[in-house]
Nucleic acid binder design. Structure first.
Length: 581
RNA sequence: GCACCCAUAGCUCAGCUGGAUAGAGCGCUGCCCUCCGAAGGCAGAGGCCUCAGGUUCGAAUCCUGAUGGGUGCGCCA
């Protein structure tokens, strides 16, 4: 139930009627006609721009169209007033009964209220995290993980068929480095002195992996050449790292549907197949790239390479898919991977990358566009950096100094709910400050707490109602007389609830889950406001002494608010609190 | 040098793909608990939406350019 689409339909019907009566010419494009909440609530409940948008094509003055449209709209019994304002806006006011009807809609729908079929069941693949399997996840990954996960949930809520996917980069040189590092820890576990030189991972998390390897194979690999052990150790180490990463994700509450291995693309002809597809389209050639302008790398020399003609699809330069030794570059398996996603029948692909992959966006879009014949859109969301603070002081991360903050450090300190919510209170393409002290603060300065508090307050009302002997289960609340909710403050809260289904669609269309977080803050604010007005005006308190019928109507409103908050938090992956401590 | 992202109140940020007098939190000045949780609420002060052009009924929003900041730029993924 989305009141805005309902009224939008009313407006379109009225416009159609005007055409039938000759008041408007045929063949007008209504696509830009919107119905939205006016910026200033004093103007009314909803506003439409219909008259202004159509004026030019209809060769009429906006206000003239508006005057006629207003007459039609006023005939609808949901609309109590329709008036022309400013340059040709039409401001509408809706009958209280329309707003009051929301309570039943919310209580009937539960946390499914606001679900949309915007996605119409289209298959969408959301790829996120995809961190290299060389160590536990750190803070940078955390933002991508939270963002991708919330986006996936949002799209699901908006009616898409969502697959959550993790691409394991286990095919490149970095896993050989990992294997060698684990091998050193393995030797160490056998009592040898080892040195970690450049090009190895000195992280302490590998000590245990080395010891486990020793327990598994004994001294079979000790003092053996690399050919003997590299493949097995690599396998063993990547498995161990993926176990670590899976644990990290679990701590955050992230569950993937698919873990897709890069390595599985090799030796199966799938990379060759994808490249062949591009070759058939005339997009693969041998050539030499121009050196980048400006600061030239010291060892630059022109080289002939196998290139993908990504410039045909808007990229700045063509991109190499093979190294000079004939091996694939990282780009080639990535092309094959996306080719595979296209072939699995997804209607839409979304990649969530870190900001450091910004330069990768154009070539990936080019590749998908070429591979799918432009049929499968790919949206690439970049998550900007997370800056950590402690006591207001920037917290520098350094691998060398051991102050590299891991995902588990953050989650252990502040919990998954806070971590998730805070990471979603900024749009993905803006950098994020994360202050350990501030996020744990319990005040309105902290949005997580503020929203949780609103939810907990409603739970508190329900407990108080039980103490006062008022029945307040959802069935009873649903049957209550909601027309008693006629105070302006109560109607305002209902109007905010009415925006929820609309907001879900906007957030889903733009792939911006942070909008959910901001909406929840506003909704919580309205509830807190109503609550406090009960201080001065006792008739606004949810529990009315000696009047259980009125109480039930008011509690139904509180409960509806809590349901929407719970639904929103559900999308963000945050558990709604029944009680705060 | 080139590409992408960002620029809105003193600070941290929203702004519903072009709408009316640009919003919130913090901070600042006041006020509200015999009351369902004051862990809250209300009010006030605070703005040339970085700058300059353009598009149109209408621009913080779209386009061009400039300035400042971030990220990246052929055998690392």
């Amino acid at each position: 139930m989305n009141l805005f689409t309902d009224i939008h339909a009313v407006v379109l019907a009225a416009l159609g009627q005007m055409q039938a009566e000759g008041a408007l010419p045929e063949g007008l494009d209504f696509a830009n006609v919107t119905v939205e909440p006016p910026r200033d609530p004093l103007h009314g409940d909803m506003a439409t721009n219909a008259a202004m948008v159509l004026a030019k094509a209809a060769k009429a003055k906006p206000r003239d169209i508006a005057e006629k449209l207003v007459e039609k709209l006023a005939a609808d019994d949901r609309i109590t007033s329709a008036e022309v304002a400013g340059p040709g806006f039409i401001n509408l006011r809706l009958a209280p009964a329309v707003w009051q009807g929301l309570v039943a809609a919310v209580l009937n729908g539960g946390t499914k209220f606001g679900r949309s079929n915007l996605g119409a069941g289209k298959k969408v693949n959301v790829e996120y995290v995809s961190a290299n399997p060389t160590g536990p996840l750190h803070v940078g990954h955390t933002r991508g993980a939270v963002f991708g996960d919330a986006l996936a949930s949002l799209l699901d809520f908006a009616g898409y068929d969502v697959t959550r996917e993790y691409y394991i980069n286990d095919g490149g040189a970095q896993v050989d480095v990992l294997a060698r590092s684990v091998y050193l820890r393995y030797l160490e576990a056998h009592g040898q002195e080892v040195a970690f030189e450049d090009g190895t991972y000195p992280g302490e998390y590998l000590i245990e992996v080395g010891a486990n390897l020793r327990d598994k194979v004994g001294d079979a690999y000790v003092d053996q050449p690399e050919e003997v052990w590299l493949t097995e150790v690599r396998e063993f180490a990547t498995e161990a790292m993926m176990d670590l990463i899976r644990e990290d994700l679990k701590m955050l509450g992230v569950e993937m549907d698919v873990f897709y291995s890069e390595k599985s693309l090799y030796g199966t002809g799938r990379i060759e197949g994808a490249i062949q597809d591009l070759t058939d389209k005339g997009l693969i050639y041998r050539g030499t790239l121009e050196p980048p302008k400006g600061k030239l790398p010291e060892d630059w020399e022109p080289r002939e390479q196998t290139l993908f003609k990504s410039t045909d699809y808007g990229d700045d330069v063509d991109r190499p898919i093979k190294k000079s030794d004939g091996a694939w570059t990282y780009f080639a398996p990535d092309i094959a991977y996306h080719y595979d996603k296209v072939q699995r029948g997804f209607d839409l692909l979304i990649d969530v990358f870190g900001a450091d992959h910004g330069g990768y966006v154009k070539r990936m879009k080019a590749a998908v566009s070429a591979l799918s014949g432009g049929k499968v859109p790919v949206d690439i969301k970049l998550c900007q950096l997370v800056k950590l603070f402690k006591n207001g002081e920037p917290f520098k991360m350094s691998k060398r100094a051991g102050t590299f903050i891991m995902l588990r450090d953050v989650v252990e300190q502040v919990g998954p709910d806070v971590t998730r919510f805070v990471m979603l209170t900024r749009k993905n393409d803006a950098p994020l400050d994360f202050d350990f002290d501030k996020v744990l603060e319990q005040s309105k300065d902290n949005p997580v707490f503020y929203v949780q508090y609103a939810h907990a307050r409603v739970a508190s009302v329900l407990r108080k109602a039980a103490e006062a002997g008022i029945t307040a289960d959802d069935a009873t609340l649903l049957a209550a007389d909601h027309t008693k909710l006629d105070h302006e403050a109560e109607l305002n809260l209902l109007k905010k609830i009415a925006e929820w289904p609309r907001l879900v669609e906007i957030a889903a269309r733009t792939n911006e889950p942070h909008r959910i977080a901001f909406y929840l803050y506003e909704l919580a604010s309205d509830l807190h406001g109503l609550w406090n007005r009960g201080n001065e005006n006792t008739s606004l308190r949810f529990i009315q002494d000696d009047d259980s019928a009125t109480s039930q109507a008011k509690i139904a409103l509180a409960r509806s608010t809590a349901v929407v908050i719970a639904a929103g938090l559900g999308i963000l992956g945050v558990t709604p609190a029944e009680e705060l401590r």
